[in-house]
Amino acid sequence: MRPDRLTSQRQRLRRQADAFEFNALIQGVSTLEESEETAAAEEAPAIENFPPAAVVLPETAAPAEQQIHAKQEIPAEPESSAAADLISEVPTITSPVHRETREERLHTALEALGIRLLQEVGRMRAALRAYDAQEAGFYLAHVNQLLELLHSVDPDGDVARHYQTTACPPEGRTWFPTAWSLAELAESPFSALLPPDADDEFAREMIYAAWGVEFSHNGT
């Protein structure tokens, strides 16, 4: 490779890396309370110079030594208001059905995911109609997660089409792409669900909410 091209590529890489944020990864994060952290540190087994359990440790150990984190408080789902009336429009999931064959299992999974996708899109649409970007973002995250799964287990949508599962993509198409950024949302069919007078700030707030980040209206 020519040195000037390599230099150019390196500069481009650096520009890209400069635009990104890695602090949470590099520094680590903790949302545990200080007192709980202290207690956990006291209970946790020492990492330093620990021996292989299979060689030295007994088969079982005191439960206190084996605890990871204490059972956690459960974060509340946003209280949906406008979504409620649309939820009844889509079918509900029944309890898990354990079928015999691999094909049937895939069919079951795709059907469940398709139903859930419609439910979450319905909730997102209701929130958008109510002009609630926070709630719409919450459901957009669910929609994106479902689409990631669908892309993962049936990348081309062929199996879903074969079984004609709920919300399967039409012939020649695959699943909708995810929308984790403004650019992706703009290109996504979901952008058609945005309120007619929604501006960039509304869309940005929705995307931030999908990431679980609160958006400050005063810009601070």
């Binding site: 944020e21 949470a24 990864l25 994060v29 545990l32 984190h69 990431w211 679980g212 609160e214």
Partner: peptide, 14 residues
């Protein structure tokens, strides 16, 4: 990184 930051808003973990 964004996902980790996002999770800190609603979940308790280290």
């Amino acid at each position: 990184n964004k996902m980790i930051v996002g999770l800190t808003k609603g979940l308790r973990f280290r």
